[in-house]
Amino acid sequence: MREMTYSIFKDQAAGWGWEKTYYLITTIEKFANVESESVVFYPKNLFVDNENVEVYFFDNQKVTVFTGKEEASSVKTLYYRQIESVEMEYKDIYYPSQLTVKFLNGQIIKLNSEVDTNNTWMNRFTKKIEDIFMKLN
């Protein structure tokens, strides 16, 4: 079972057509340390139709969030010292998980392995969410 890496993400994104992903990939490669082994990478909505792709890089001090649209992209950084709460939810031991991270400034990150990807990748995204939870605690 392969893990979703940035390299696999980039290959998948290229399949959507260069015009749609050019700004997102360019912004990520300008501001993210895509090769670091200490970073947990999470691509939200990668295989979800009609949703903007959000790409998260959780390093040791912050999360950097990239949002891609057809003709634009954005990047924001949220620091862990500003976290108010971190909550992990399971339907049961075998079902997808959801992670909710609330920040003092009102920002909320919700990652859900059931809705953020397709059935093929769901279990692997659950593992990524667990890794992010462990990094934040």
Results as ranks from 00 to 15, higher is better:
Asp116Trp: 04
Tyr94Ser: 08
Thr67Glu: 07
Asn45His: 04
Ser74Asn: 12
Asn105Ser: 13
Thr77Gln: 15
Tyr6Ile: 03
Met1Cys: 05
Glu3Arg: 10
Leu99Pro: 02
Thr117Pro: 00
Met88Pro: 00
Tyr90Cys: 02
Leu78Gln: 15
Ser74Tyr: 03
Asp59Phe: 09
Asn123Ile: 01
Asn50His: 12
Asp11Leu: 00
Thr64Lys: 09
Gln82Glu: 11
Thr5Leu: 14
Lys30Cys: 05
Ile132Cys: 04
Gln61Leu: 14
Glu84Pro: 01
Asp92Phe: 09
Leu78Met: 11
Thr120Gly: 00
Glu114Arg: 12
Val75Ser: 05
Ala72Cys: 07
Asn60Gly: 05
Trp18Cys: 06
Leu104Gly: 12
Thr126Asp: 14
Leu136Glu: 01
Asp92Asn: 15
Gln98Tyr: 01
Ile83Thr: 14
Pro96His: 06
Pro96Phe: 03
Tyr94Trp: 08
Asn105Met: 10
Ala14Phe: 00
Leu24Val: 13
Val48Gly: 05
Thr77Tyr: 02
Glu87Asn: 07
Arg124Asn: 12
Asn52Pro: 04
Lys127Pro: 00
Ser113Ala: 06
Glu70Arg: 15
Lys102Met: 05
Ser113Met: 04
Phe133Glu: 13
Glu19Leu: 08
Leu99Asn: 05
Lys30Leu: 13
Lys76Gln: 12
Leu104Lys: 11
Tyr6Glu: 00
Ile28Asn: 02
Ala72Met: 07
Val55Ile: 10
Gly106Lys: 04
Ser73Phe: 02
Tyr6Gly: 05
Thr21Pro: 01
Phe103Met: 06
Trp18Arg: 01
Met122Glu: 06
Tyr90Glu: 06
Leu111Lys: 06
Leu104Arg: 07
Ser113His: 01
Ala13Asp: 01
Ile83Asp: 07
Val65Tyr: 01
Ser74Glu: 09
Glu54Ser: 13
Val101Pro: 04
Lys76Glu: 15
Arg2Pro: 12
Asn119Glu: 06
Ser113Leu: 02
Asp11Arg: 00
Ile25Thr: 11
Ser38Val: 14
Tyr90Lys: 05
Thr5Ala: 13
Glu3Leu: 04
Phe47His: 08
Ser97Cys: 08
Thr77Leu: 10
Phe31Arg: 09
Glu71Ser: 09
Phe47Glu: 08
Phe133Met: 02
Ile108Val: 15
Ser36Arg: 04
Lys20Asp: 11
Ile8Lys: 11
Thr126Met: 05
Val65Pro: 09
Thr5Gly: 11
Tyr56Met: 13
Thr126Trp: 05
Ser85Gln: 07
Phe57Thr: 07
Asn33Asp: 15
Ile83Phe: 14
